[in-house]
Amino acid sequence: MGFGQFLSAPEVKLRIVTYRDIFQDSAKVTSLFGEDYEKLSAIIKLDPKDLSKLAIKEGDTLMLKNGFGKVVVKAQNSGYEKPHTGTAYMVNSPWSNVLVPEDAGGTGVPEFKDFEVLASSAKGAKVTGIREII
């Protein structure tokens, strides 16, 4: 797969909302550097319409980027009954924190739970590893 495929992939602007997950959190406690923690953290939950717009399937990798950083994570169908096109969900983790805006408006509280990214297909690319993040 060449770099050109990334350039031609459709880009979709997404509003990211973060959440907590007990399985991911306990995997962190067990081993922050372990496979389970990465598997449960490096994911994004999307509305099925956004999966279509991005021309990807569940389990494919997605590049998420904004002015603060970029990560490759796996796409999942959120499974939520209520449609949420344009809004996607990420578990709170070092992967989501790569994308959280630095500017907290002088308040000392970054927008952990509400920020924007540009998403594009990264089919075939590996998920960003935790050691690459730091």
């Binding site: 962190k28 922050l32 603060f68 070092p94 924190n97 959280v100 970054p110 993040i133």
Partner: peptide, 11 residues
């Protein structure tokens, strides 16, 4: 605490 896990990378 582990700020490199819990805070924005850019911060």
């Amino acid at each position: 605490a582990d700020p490199l896990t819990s805070l924005p990378r850019s911060v």
